[in-house]
Design a protein around this nucleic acid. Sequence first.
DNA 1: TTTT
DNA 2: TTTT
Lengths: 170, 170, 170, 170
Amino acid sequence: MASRGVNKVILLGNVGGDPETRYLPNGNAVTNITLATSDSWKDKQTGQVQERTEWHRVVFFGKLAEIAGEYLKKGSQVYVEGRLQTRKWQDQSGQDRYTTEIVVDMGGTMQLLGGRATGAHPEESAPRQAAPRAAASVREPQAPSAPRPTQPAQPSAMPDYDSFDDDIPF
Amino acid sequence: MASRGVNKVILLGNVGGDPETRYLPNGNAVTNITLATSDSWKDKQTGQVQERTEWHRVVFFGKLAEIAGEYLKKGSQVYVEGRLQTRKWQDQSGQDRYTTEIVVDMGGTMQLLGGRATGAHPEESAPRQAAPRAAASVREPQAPSAPRPTQPAQPSAMPDYDSFDDDIPF
Amino acid sequence: MASRGVNKVILLGNVGGDPETRYLPNGNAVTNITLATSDSWKDKQTGQVQERTEWHRVVFFGKLAEIAGEYLKKGSQVYVEGRLQTRKWQDQSGQDRYTTEIVVDMGGTMQLLGGRATGAHPEESAPRQAAPRAAASVREPQAPSAPRPTQPAQPSAMPDYDSFDDDIPF
Amino acid sequence: MASRGVNKVILLGNVGGDPETRYLPNGNAVTNITLATSDSWKDKQTGQVQERTEWHRVVFFGKLAEIAGEYLKKGSQVYVEGRLQTRKWQDQSGQDRYTTEIVVDMGGTMQLLGGRATGAHPEESAPRQAAPRAAASVREPQAPSAPRPTQPAQPSAMPDYDSFDDDIPF
DNA sequence: TTTT
DNA sequence: TTTT
């Protein structure tokens, strides 16, 4: 009922393989993916461009797990917002091991982007524009009390920049 | 039921004045504050340190509006996560005007930090550590299906770094 | 040389029109775009899906301004990270007016995504995969001292999940 | 020189112990801390408030490592922005192990907040207000080309809300 | 109008 | 003025 602290992860990258979905005893879906984020930079010494790919373990829960399992494919470009969580587990020899994952549940978000996924099952791949709509649906419960405009007038419409820009002293 | 896009603002700064809370016809609270974020940098030409304060209009809705109205004071240091929204309105002469605000509702967060608020009503000021707990409570509905551990074993408990670190080849 | 506060905006959306680039007296580029972020939700009363588009004014400076001016087109899907800034200006009647923008400079980022831009000059449109590489180049100066691996072994290479997963007690 | 992807972590929490700083052969500082972020929620079944603390390994590099080593103490409340990185290493038995850390270097940020640190060395603890100024200094190189106002007039000054608010049709 |  |  309370919280102290912020634990937020924002990733935008490509999915490393087809997602794996399983179901908990209570029927809730859990989907695992690996996600690659790449960045590159010029080496100060050599002047060579260096590239580095970081791999992340992402776990979706609930409604987002279903959506991720259905729409994400190997190669999909995706935006993800979640939180860090480190799980403790025991390996075969009984030793404690730790795995850090990005948990994406109702407090998070997933947005499928325009990436050309190399689907394992391309024949059944949905039209990509379907995914983002579906994907976002889980955010709905997050803003029930939001001040959404229902009036005919749209308070947040764009200013009339054509006439307006003349006034802007850039 | 769907979403396409990300619209997120993260601010950490100081409140410019006591919050103003009002109530909508439906009983929901709305609280307005102004928030200052400062940054400084060394001028490349002069070598002088420059400072700049940016002021933001933040609007809380719902439960967070109540918490903000109760715990924030002039001077409070606060972390806020919300979304950008530009409202259109008419000034006295009937001209269209636009105001951009950071909306913080159930999809957002507020964390009161350790700042020494100069409360308008210091006598009634709650112990400051109470605020963050209360403040965060509104996030609860965001993670109802989250994979919270309810097992006796805490998967995410602090690793035993003392023994653990020995293995880490820093 | 110092900073107190956080002022961060993260947007992922579609560009509303071809970017407009101009040059400051010192030769630095400045590029303006408008960016739409959409979200939708189900109305609690009516059960109807509501949609809302928020428009943002984004201003790129420096190297990112050049990249944005070259690669962004009307319709481009783009990820942007910047900071909020409100400018004061005077309209024709001499009245003070304020415009809030998202400033994206060296402290920010831009990532062109997979969107199918409807370029004004499609014939000269670069292969879309070229853009993200170029776009990110401005981040280079941000991490010169970063602990990038230059050793033959890549510490952060993809774990061998195939063999590795066997140990993970999901 | 380029980048494709976003890898960003934002944490706000309390430091688990005094920071440990060491120096690389090239003289650069590296500082390690553990950081706790807590959140709590009401259990749907029991109605009981549950609390959970997540621990993170944070590694600072360069100038920020020096600042972190000097100003952070056990218990310090701190805001951190960095990126995820998983290191591979071998334990005593030669087995591959992985550790995920939040790397905070020039592309990141650190802000010491108002927390009452329980310093291991309270006698030598600097006045807390000194830290944030120092801490932020490392961000300077990130925005050298930023459009900072050098004009006498401050473009980003606060609107005169007193007279202004009357016009706002809330 | 905040804060350092 | 975008996008689905």
